[in-house]
Nucleic acid binder design. Structure first.
Length: 442
RNA sequence: GUGGAUGUAGCUCAGUUGGUUAGAGCGCUAGACUGUGGCUCUGGAGGUCGCGGGUUCGAGCCCCGUCAUCCACCCCA
């Protein structure tokens, strides 16, 4: 056989143990948080009929779908997110799903994007959604969940930025914009404000979006509304007439924030009127979350309300809100911030093996240690002690259990704590307990 | 997808106006230390100079193509 060049596809990555161990721990933490909030697990296939996926993400999104014909000639696509499959499931099993339905799903999604820092073609999303509630209690609950997800991962410095589609629609109504194209063009320009500044934004609004001075003034009257959430809401209320669509958005956001404040969680949450979100299915609140210390890095967690999406599959519309954490982007972000300690070994204990004469004794010791619930690796070859110690050191294993012929003769093992540099002789029947006490104390 | 930059050992990089056998640090490995890791010292292994073509007596260096990576735009988890 000719040699095949080992390589991975652009935008796709291998996760070696040093990354995979912390990643798996993150996923476990996220899953625990989801369950603590009463969300139930759901799994759906990676492949969907293409028609399920198309038309849900906007023109840009459609371009980014991985699509092909399967072996039977069917048009299929790899899922682009976990929200559309959820909407499909809710519509497909009306008899088996009790509304409001709270589910979580942790699974990879695929987007044929141009890879960049923190952006991949295959990445894991962690989604939680509440389907079947139109009330802001659900929106607030998901924001709270989002904050706790990040806190549970040890991320302290982040900000959830919240906006509302109806507020943006209200602005469009004030500008007399009716076409969806013009609207998304303007939103795209507005979205750049934090990056390019006011003067440039004005230029673009004039040049790219063809807005008149009066309209530009209205956009900035809107964008300059700043301050605490209470102040922003008050400012918006002055702009939007009672009964207008914009006013509805303000009222809903006000409700979300009053719940967050009462729950004492509003400090990590801000209103940001420039957040637009590209996915076209959002209809209400929208969220994007940024790491405070990585300005310019993409959103690590986002979501929003999509009251019309389920209706696409069901006829009657069912209101829904969701939030999605991108674990791979977050992981890379934490690596950049040096907040992630890479770990190489899963088991904290290494049992030495010197030769055929003591291998059986070492295997028996390892069995006892494992029976005590302690992760334990048996050195997989006959090697010099020095070599085995070096490995334990490199792997970050704190305890080395020496099972040589001297120990075997006495029914003992020497346990060395690599961190303290101290060593003790322990009878093997006490070894499991001895190590369990120490490992659990860490 | 568009524009710009980069591609030399496992990693970070050096490599003078194209000139014989391509270097350093770190890492890896063996030993100094014949039952003990981290520190130190000594030796060793490891490179189709991303890949393909061209110019040249001669290419890591110049030209073309290609692939990959990074940055910006775009968009987002």
């Amino acid at each position: 056989m000719s040699k095949v060049e080992p390589r991975t596809l652009r935008g796709f990555r291998d996760y070696l143990p040093a990354k995979m161990i912390p990643r798996q721990r993150m996923i476990e933490s996220i899953e625990r948080t989801f369950q603590r909030f009463g969300f139930a697990p759901l799994m759906t296939p990676a492949l969907e009929y293409l028609e399920i996926l198309t038309g849900k993400y906007g023109d840009e999104g459609d371009q980014l779908l991985y699509r092909f014909k399967d072996n039977g000639g069917r048009d299929v696509g790899l899922r682009y997110d976990l929200t559309v499959p959820l909407a499909r499931v809710v519509a497909q099993y009306p008899g088996e799903i009790t509304l409001p339905f709270r589910r979580y799903q942790i699974a990879p999604v695929w987007r044929a994007e141009n890879p960049a820092r923190g952006r991949f073609r295959e990445f894991m999303q962690c989604d939680a959604d509440i389907v079947g509630s139109k009330d802001m209690a659900a929106d607030a609950e998901l924001v709270q969940l989002g904050c706790e997800l990040l806190e549970g991962l040890g991320v302290e410095r982040f900000k959830v930025r919240v906006n509302h589609r109806k507020i943006l629609s209200g602005l469009m109504a004030r500008l007399g914009i009716t076409s969806r194209e013009a609207e998304s063009g303007i939103l795209r320009t507005i979205d750049k404000l934090p990056k390019i500044g006011e003067a440039e934004t004005m230029k673009l609004l004039r040049a790219d979006n063809g807005l008149e001075e009066g309209s530009i003034a209205k956009v900035f009257e809107f964008l300059r509304i700043a301050g605490t959430s209470t102040e922003v809401l008050a400012g918006l209320e002055k702009i939007f007439e009672e009964g207008s669509i914009g006013r509805q958005g303000v009222t809903e956001l006000r409700e979300v924030f009053s719940i967050l404040e009462a729950a004492e969680l509003s400090s990590a949450v801000d209103i940001d009127l420039s957040i637009a979100r590209g996915l076209s299915y959002y209809t209400g609140t929208i969220y994007e979350t940024f790491l405070t210390d990585l300005a310019g890095y993409g959103s690590v967690m986002s979501g929003g309300r999509y009251d019309e999406l389920v209706g696409v599959f069901r006829g009657e519309s069912v209101p829904a809100v969701g939030i999605s954490l991108g674990i791979d982007r977050l992981l890379e972000g934490l690596v950049e911030l040096k907040l992630l300690k890479e770990a190489r070994a899963v088991a904290p204990v290494l049992v030495t093996v010197f030769g055929a004469d003591t291998a059986g004794y070492a295997a028996r010791i390892a069995r006892w240690i494992r029976a005590a619930g302690v992760g334990c690796e048996l050195y997989p070859a006959y090697a010099k002690m020095k070599k085995q110690f070096t490995r334990a050191n490199d792997m970050g294993q704190r305890w080395v259990v020496i099972a040589g012929s001297d120990e075997m003769a006495k029914g003992q093992a020497a346990v060395k704590d690599m961190q303290l540099g101290q060593q003790e002789l322990v009878a093997i029947e006490q070894l499991g307990q001895y190590l369990a006490d120490r490992v659990n104390a860490v």
